[in-house]
């Protein structure tokens, strides 16, 4: 199922943060939003998730206009930068939350929720930590719980805001693999915000380079490297490669 953002504008007071951003994704694609701090990546992601609203522009999912759809009805999984795990719930309760709050008609049975939770716990290899609270987990473990919680609702799209930024370099490397793996298994499209070029290159099918409220180039990593559209992209690609 395809996702499209069309000509998204957003201002905070007098400063225009998004100046007409368009983005169009294929089914199951992994897209990275790459850009310097303050370029508007988080703002764009929040608008896609429904956690903020565009001043102008349109969001389409599988042809349906979702611009005004409340966040909860979009069925997009969101992984927050600081994970935002429910501190008063265990790992298992965190993961099951999205299923437990479904309206009675569409809510799976108690045992079905438990089974699905177990399945996700095994997928993130944390079955033995199901009864821990978030405060008792390492950063990497928290990250994986946040992923599992977002995937539990079988989202139509997975959104991640700098999912690795709170982790140290080693954990980062190993988690990259597992995130890509989880996303493939779930067969869901994903948008990941990052300001780490290596991360974008390692994970993404296509990378959208953002600068000052615009997407300046949107293409496969190889193309960005071989054929940058501007000095900005060239410098961004080279600075990290060196």
């Amino acid at each position: 199922m395809t996702f499209q953002a069309l000509d998204i504008h957003k201002s905070f007071g007098d400063t225009e943060v998004l100046k007409g951003v368009s983005l169009s994704m294929k089914e199951g694609e992994f897209v990275a939003l790459l850009g310097p701090s303050g370029s508007g990546k988080t703002t764009l992601l929040n608008i896609i998730a429904g956690l903020a609203h565009a001043d102008r522009g349109q969001l389409l999912f599988a042809g349906e206009d979702i611009t005004r759809l409340p966040a909860g009805q979009r069925h997009f999984g969101f992984v927050f930068q600081n994970y935002a795990l429910f501190r008063h719930m265990t790992v298992a309760q965190n993961i099951a939350f999205g299923l437990r709050v479904l309206p009675r008609k569409s809510r799976p049975s108690r045992s079905a929720i438990a089974a699905r939770t177990r399945e996700l716990l095994e997928m993130i290899e944390m079955a033995d930590l199901a009864d821990r609270f978030p405060a008792q987990l390492s950063g990497g473990q928290r990250q994986r719980v946040a992923m599992a919680r977002a995937l539990a609702i079988e989202p139509r799209l997975l959104l991640m805001d700098e999912p690795f930024s709170a982790l140290d370099a080693q954990v980062r490397q190993s988690l990259r693999e597992s995130v890509r793996d989880l996303q493939r298994k779930a067969g869901v499209g994903a948008i990941m915000v990052t300001h780490d070029r290596a991360e974008a290159w390692a994970l993404a099918d296509r990378v959208a380079v953002m600068n000052e409220g615009h997407i300046v180039q949107f293409d496969r990593p190889e193309v960005l490297s071989s054929n940058p559209s501007s000095d900005f992209v060239r410098l961004l690609v080279r600075a990290d490669a060196a």
Binding site: A71, G72, L85, F86
Partner: peptide
């Protein structure tokens, strides 16, 4: 408000957010 926003993205309604988060 992060936990509450997380609950919103997971589809919780107002009462559920209040009650559980």
């Amino acid at each position: 408000e992060d936990e509450e926003l997380a609950a919103v993205t997971l589809g919780a309604n107002g009462w559920q957010i209040f009650r559980h988060v």
